[in-house]
Design a protein around this nucleic acid. Structure first.
Length: 576
RNA sequence: CGGGGCGUAGCGCAGCCUGGUUAGCGCGCCAGAUUUGGGAUCUGGAGGUCGGUGGUUCGAAUCCACUCGCCCCGACCA
């Protein structure tokens, strides 16, 4: 392409409301423009990169036997009602009515639609296994779209679904996807880590997320440098030192704690207790029911773990009035001793603890000498605690560190959740109807683009990996009006096109500085600079964007030197 | 949803508090000239219902009310 005829609206300054670097650079480099909150237009450069990403995904999915479909984004309510997710998805689902008043929605994911096809067409175990996929738009009415392409309401996802006759088959399909995903991210040049994850509204038993470490991410990953354990903190476990308690009195003792409202305040209050000798009582409304959650005073509740423990569809912290009505005290004086009317979930770190201090459910009073086994009627013990940096690895004797990360893919073992609720069965070898065992696997293509920018940028702009850059090379003649330069550039341009090298030719009549800066900004991996002096010796300059290194080469050698550099850049390298 | 902030030319901003001629500045854009190895210079131009609606006032970008949109911080996910 000739730059003068191609639409690359670069910006000199950062748009004011872009915070994260990928958002700033994609805007400045003329890749995207915003239409609304979490809604972006992809301009030609971005769309070229997106197609490359999609094709890499396509090739790797095809390589594991995936078959590409294209399903509707517009879905009738019925299929979602059958699976039960019409209600579960809540406000995150875009809903609409047709002219007859029938309920429809925009697909957030496609388990339901694919399962509809499976149950209609798959009859026998002999037709299994199947891996079906599509690359398509997903719509999610996010509570808070943010960070440019990182969190949007409409995005492109490769979603695939595996159908097997049994769980052994699912294990194989899951492993195939895991391998395929690794190849995809490797080919896209991303550094990533695979972590254990929380399955959320997808359901199912096991899931892995593919994460890119970046501060722009919204997840936290706990990892052990020693043994390689890695998990989303929504799921992560950790090892913490046991606290040895003193002998407790025969029964809890109530004592006045005027004005003490926090764990912190009670640690310094005369007659109080250290935070790890306190029981923190949190009150949530879980699927309409008021529920208590107990943690050690110095621990934080992880709400994803709350969901895992309770199986909740909806949850929120209870309001102070609701709490007072239920327990007779305000936050700051709450406890679970003697409470029987409500479910009580207790964190495993509290097991066996005694001589603890907690609220007395009477404002300005606490109880000490509490023995959990004796004094509190725990409904269920569960892991509720948020893992923190510096805690012990659950697998080895290493130390965990917690870091921000962005989710770029997620693979789930669904099991029979959808096949059972929607009636997708096949006949097995014994002639029995059995539910198909399913898996579901997603990759956000837009997030691959954005995370590549997060990972590969510098002061001057984007530095895309060769495999997903919109162009392989840019030709920059120093002076558009110099006939010799122009002729050399034109000739090189058509030569490279003939060699199938994707070339952008900056034929604009701009000053060299403008062209160099624009070339750096948009992130083309190689630049060929053609200037008078070197051209007089038959030479041009090849500049590598990522390293900023340049070398002078004979103009006739450019095509094969470039071809070599490009094939090196394309070579898959292990990312994690 | 709760909390904070912002809407003035394509982009970045000033003006608003304390209402008063034709609403400014930088960048970008158009024309011409001189320039051409890291975001040139000069000259001359184009471009704005000041997010919207209603109100107060002789007079509103400016004050008031409502409303829409966007960004950021906390609970959701590719």
């Amino acid at each position: 392409m000739r730059w003068s005829q191609y639409f690359i609206p670069t910006l000199r300054e950062n748009p004011a409301d872009a915070e994260v670097v990928s958002h700033q650079l994609l805007l400045r480099a003329g890749y995207i423009r915003q239409l609304g909150a979490g809604i972006y237009s992809f301009l030609p450069l971005a769309y070229r990169s997106m197609r490359k990403i999609e094709n890499i995904i396509r090739e790797e999915m095809d390589a594991i036997g995936g078959q590409e479909f294209y399903l509707p984004a517009l879905n009738p309510a019925e299929v979602w009602q059958e699976s039960g997710r019409w209600d579960v998805m809540g406000d995150n689902m875009f809903r609409l009515k047709d002219r007859k008043g029938a309920d429809l929605c925009l697909g957030m994911t496609h388990e339901e639609v694919f399962t509809t096809i499976a149950r209609g067409e798959l009859r026998s175990y002999k037709q299994l296994p199947q891996i079906w996929y599509q690359i398509q738009l997903k719509f999610r009415d996010e509570p808070r779209p943010k960070s440019g392409l990182l969190r949007v309401r409409q995005f492109t996802m490769k979603d695939s679904y595996s159908f097997d006759k049994d769980f052994e088959g699912l294990d194989i399909a899951f492993e195939k996807h895991r391998e395929a995903y690794m190849k995809i991210y490797d080919r896209c040049g991303l550094q990533y880590v695979i972590v254990e994850a929380h399955s959320g509204s997808m359901g199912g038993s096991k899931s892995n997320e593919f994460m890119v470490y970046t501060n722009a991410g919204e997840d936290n990953v706990a990892s052990c440098p020693k043994c390689g354990y890695a998990a989303n903190t929504e799921k992560a476990a950790s090892r913490i030192p046991t606290v040895v308690d003193d002998q407790d009195p025969a029964q809890p003792e109530k004592f006045a704690t005027p004005g003490v409202r926090t764990i912190e305040a009670l640690t310094t209050f005369a007659g109080g207790a250290a935070a790890d000798r306190q029981i923190k009582t949190l009150v949530y409304i879980v699927d309409e029911k008021l529920t208590l959650f107990l943690l050690r005073g110095d621990h934080q509740l992880n709400e994803a773990k709350l969901v895992s423990a309770t199986g909740a569809t909806h949850h929120r912290p209870a309001h102070a009035e609701e709490i007072f009505a239920a327990l007779g005290a305000h936050p700051g004086s709450l406890g679970a001793v003697g409470v029987t009317r409500f479910d009580i979930y207790a964190d495993e770190a509290l097991e066996g603890r005694r001589n603890m201090t907690t609220g007395a459910n009477e404002d300005d009073f606490h109880l000490r000498g509490v023995n959990i086994d004796r004094d509190i009627k725990v409904t269920k013990w569960a892991d509720l605690r948020n893992v923190e940096s510096g805690e012990g690895c659950p697998i080895c004797d290493g130390t965990l560190r917690v870091a921000k990360a962005l989710e770029i893919g997620h693979i789930f073992k669904l099991g029979t959740k959808y096949s059972v609720s929607m009636g997708a069965n096949v006949l097995n070898e014994n002639g029995e109807q059995v539910p198909i065992v399913m898996g579901s696997y997603g990759i956000g293509a837009d997030r691959i683009l954005a995370s590549a920018v997060e990972l590969y940028n510098d002061q001057a702009g984007i530095s895309f990996p060769g495999s997903i850059a919109p162009f392989h090379v840019i030709i920059t003649p120093i002076n558009a009006k110099d006939e010799k330069l122009r002729a050399a550039a034109e000739e090189l341009y058509s030569t490279l096109i003939k060699r199938s090298i994707e070339v952008l030719y900056d034929d604009r009549d701009e000053r060299p500085g403008v062209k160099f800066n624009d070339a750096d900004l948009i992130g083309v991996p190689f630049r060929i600079t053609i200037g008078q002096k070197k051209l007089a010796d038959g030479k041009v300059e090849i500049v590598t964007r990522s390293t900023r290194q340049s070398e002078d080469v004979n103009i006739a050698d450019v095509p094969h030197i470039l071809a070599e550099k490009l094939s090196q850049a394309e070579a898959p390298k292990r990312g994690s």
